[in-house]
C-alpha cells in the first residue's frame, strides 16, 4: 500500500493577515518531501488563491490535503454564500469582491482562473446559500 500523508487546516474567516498560512505550511511540507519545485509552486499558488477566496467570500473554511507518490489532492470547503454563476466566476477579470478587498490586492477576478491554470484536475461543487467546495489535483510526473 502506498503511503499517504494527510493534512487538515481550519482557515479562520476574520483574519486577512493570516490568510495563506495553511498554503505556506503545505509548501514547506512538500519541500521537505523533496517534491519538484514546479509541482510545489503549482500546489502553493492554487491552494493560496483558494484560501484567500475562503477568507474574502465565505468567512473561512476547511482544507484537506492528501499527498501520495502520484500527486497532491486538495479539497477546500466553505459554508459561504455559494457561486450563483460558475461560468461567469471562471472568467478572467470577473469579480464580485468589494472595493475594500481590491485595496488589499485581491478581487482582480483571477482567483478561480489561476486555480484552474495551476492544477491538473479542477472540480467545483457549489450551491447558493449552502457553500462551495473545490476539488483540486496536481499530478507528480
Amino acid at each position: 500500500m502506498e503511503d499517504v500523508i494527510k493534512l487538515h487546516y481550519v482557515v479562520p474567516g476574520d483574519d486577512f493577515t493570516r490568510a495563506g498560512a495553511a498554503s505556506g505550511d503545505v509548501k514547506r511540507t512538500l519541500k521537505q518531501l523533496g517534491i519538484s519545485p514546479a509541482v510545489i509552486r503549482n500546489v502553493s499558488i492554487a491552494m493560496y488563491e483558494g484560501e484567500i477566496n475562503m477568507v474574502i467570500h465565505a468567512g473561512g473554511g476547511e482544507i484537506d490535503v492528501e499527498i501520495t507518490e502520484n500527486g497532491i489532492k486538495m479539497a477546500l470547503a466553505d459554508k459561504g454564500p455559494g457561486i450563483a454563476n460558475v461560468e461567469l466566476a471562471m472568467k478572467e477579470g470577473y469579480s464580485t469582491a468589494p472595493d475594500n478587498i481590491r485595496n488589499l490586492g485581491f478581487g482582480a477576478g483571477m482567483g478561480l482562473p489561476n486555480i484552474k491554470k495551476y492544477t491538473d484536475d479542477f472540480r467545483i461543487e457549489t450551491a447558493v446559500g449552502v457553500g462551495t467546495t473545490l476539488f483540486l489535483n496536481v499530478n507528480i510526473q
Binding site: 490586492g105 482582480a108 477576478g109 483571477m110
Partner: peptide, 9 residues
C-alpha cells in the same frame, strides 16, 4: 502590480 492575483498569474 498592486494586484496579487495578477502576480500569481
Amino acid at each position: 502590480s498592486d494586484m496579487m492575483s495578477d502576480v500569481l498569474a
